[in-house]
């Protein structure tokens, strides 16, 4: 008979091994579909930056921010935020909807010897990991495509790191929450009702402060987690631009991860347990 400590230890080791096995599976699938992943992550930011920061200046329609900062510089943190957040919905939530409802492929992992909460956390953290990769592959594109120079000044690496990590966990949690709440036939609805408002009202294309011109909108968008991702990354990458106080973004992203994560964990439990 094992002593309580050693059996608690072997249990923790079993859960950890099981978690790691599932992580390895997800990494394997990500590697196998690397081309698709990169294409899906890059295409939308590429077209936004190409049209707004390359085509517009070329045809003499350059959008300029009020204090004469290049639009490309405003777009850079915004589109990194966009890439992080949208891989969370497109590449975490949508496959998860299918795995749970349509193909039931998740079954084998649900039956793995670890608590369902741990399985949900694996999904969340792997989504965060994908978000980090998305940020890293989108950034150079945003830096080199625009006609005008992009002015990135990283003043605080710890701040940038914290914002980036919390942004990716928020995206992973959002993916988990949406993926466990929706059924396959609701995916088009998610795109219209969640994806579009979140992008266009996510302070991707403008700093939050400039919304002061439309006060009601400035308040409403505070419910959108993408605002804090964009504003947090603005504080980290382009601190010369107006941005929310870094601690506000960091707190908001922590709360968003916690709330969306809790919804997602509950969602997965509800979907796989009767």
């Amino acid at each position: 008979m094992n002593s309580p400590t050693s059996s608690a230890g072997s249990r923790a080791a079993l859960y950890a091994a099981s978690f790691w096995g599932i992580w390895l599976r997800d990494s394997h699938v990500l590697r196998a579909s690397a081309f698709t992943f990169i294409t899906r992550v890059l295409m939308q930011p590429l077209f936004f930056v190409f049209v707004f920061a390359y085509v517009f200046p070329k045809i003499g329609r350059e959008v300029r921010a009020s204090d004469d900062v290049g639009f490309a510089t405003i777009l850079t943190p915004g589109l990194v935020a966009f890439a992080v957040m949208f891989q969370g919905i497109n590449l975490v939530a949508f496959p998860l909807v299918n795995e749970i409802s349509a193909t039931r492929e998740i079954e084998d992992r649900v039956m793995a010897p670890l608590p369902t909460t741990a399985l949900a956390l694996e999904k969340l953290l792997f989504g965060a990991f994908q978000g980090l990769i998305a940020a890293l592959i989108v950034f150079p594109l945003l830096y080199f495509v625009p006609v005008a120079e992009v002015e990135v000044h990283i003043e605080s690496w710890p701040l940038l790191t914290a914002v980036l990590l919390l942004s990716t966990t928020t995206a992973g949690a959002a993916g988990l929450a949406i993926g466990t709440a929706m059924k396959p036939n609701q995916i088009p609805l998610v795109v219209s009702v969640i994806t579009l408002p979140v992008i266009f009202l996510g302070c991707v294309f403008y700093p939050w402060q400039e919304l002061a011109a439309v006060p009601w909108l400035q308040v409403v968008v505070l419910a959108n987690p993408l605002v804090y991702v964009s504003e947090g990354l603005r504080a980290g990458l382009t601190p010369q631009l107006p941005h929310l106080l870094p601690w506000v973004s960091i707190c908001a992203l922590t709360i968003a991860t916690a709330i969306l994560g809790a919804i997602g964990v509950r969602g997965l439990r509800n979907r796989v347990l009767d």
């Binding site: 079993l14 599976r25 079954e107 084998d108 039956m111 793995a112």
Partner: peptide
Amino acid sequence: VVSQFNTLDRSCTVFDNVAFHCRYFG
């Protein structure tokens, strides 16, 4: 457990379906 549905992991080969399952079990 073998459920009523074909729950094979469509993103992995036949071999990886079994090998990853073993990894899930430590």
